[in-house]
C-alpha cells in the first residue's frame, strides 16, 4: 500500500508545482510559460503509448517501439527546460519567470513519475 501520507505529500507537491507555473505567467502578464506545463504533461505520454502499442499482452523490456517512446520522453523533458531558457534568452519572458516555470514543471513531472511508480508497484503480484 503506497501510504496515505505519501499520496497526500505528492498531491501537495503537485499543487505547489502548478502554483509556481501559474505565478510565473500571471505575475508578468505573459502566458508563454504555460507551454512548459503542456510539455511536461506530454512528456510521460510517449512512454505510455509505446509500451501499450508494442506489447499489449506480454512484458517486453526492449524493442524499437519502446525505444522510440523513451527517446521522445527524453526529448520532451529537456524541451521543458530548453524552451523557457530560449524564450528568456530572447527576452520574451523574464528570467525569474523562466526559473519559476522550470521548477514548477520539474515538480509536476516528478509527481507524475512518482504516481506511476507507486501504481505499478501496487499491481505487481
Amino acid at each position: 500500500m503506497a501510504g496515505l501520507k505519501t499520496i497526500i505529500a505528492l498531491s501537495f507537491v503537485l499543487a505547489i508545482g502548478f502554483l509556481l507555473v501559474i505565478l510565473s505567467s500571471a505575475l508578468f502578464g505573459n502566458y508563454f510559460p504555460l507551454l512548459v506545463v503542456a510539455t511536461y504533461c506530454l512528456a510521460p505520454l510517449p512512454n505510455a503509448v509505446c509500451s501499450r502499442w508494442s506489447n499489449p499482452d506480454d512484458f517486453e523490456s526492449t524493442g524499437p517501439g519502446l525505444d522510440l517512446g523513451r527517446f521522445l520522453t527524453g526529448f520532451f523533458v529537456v524541451m521543458g527546460i530548453a524552451l523557457p531558457a530560449a524564450l528568456a534568452h530572447s527576452g520574451i519572458i523574464q528570467v525569474s519567470a523562466m526559473v519559476m516555470s522550470i521548477l514548477g514543471g520539474l515538480l509536476i513531472y516528478g509527481t507524475i513519475i512518482s504516481f506511476t511508480m507507486f501504481f505499478q508497484e501496487e499491481s505487481d503480484f
Binding site: 523513451r70 527517446f71 527524453g74 526529448f75 520532451f76 529537456v78 534568452h89 530572447s90
Partner: peptide
C-alpha cells in the same frame, strides 16, 4: 540500454533547441 536511449533523446533535444534559440534571438532581439 534505456539510459542510453533517454540520453540520446535529451542530447537531440538540447541540440535542436540551441539552434531554435539562436533563430528566435536573431529574429526578436
Amino acid at each position: 540500454r534505456s539510459a542510453g536511449v533517454y540520453t540520446s533523446g535529451a542530447l537531440f533535444s538540447l541540440g535542436f533547441w540551441f539552434f531554435v534559440d539562436a533563430a528566435v534571438y536573431s529574429k526578436v532581439a
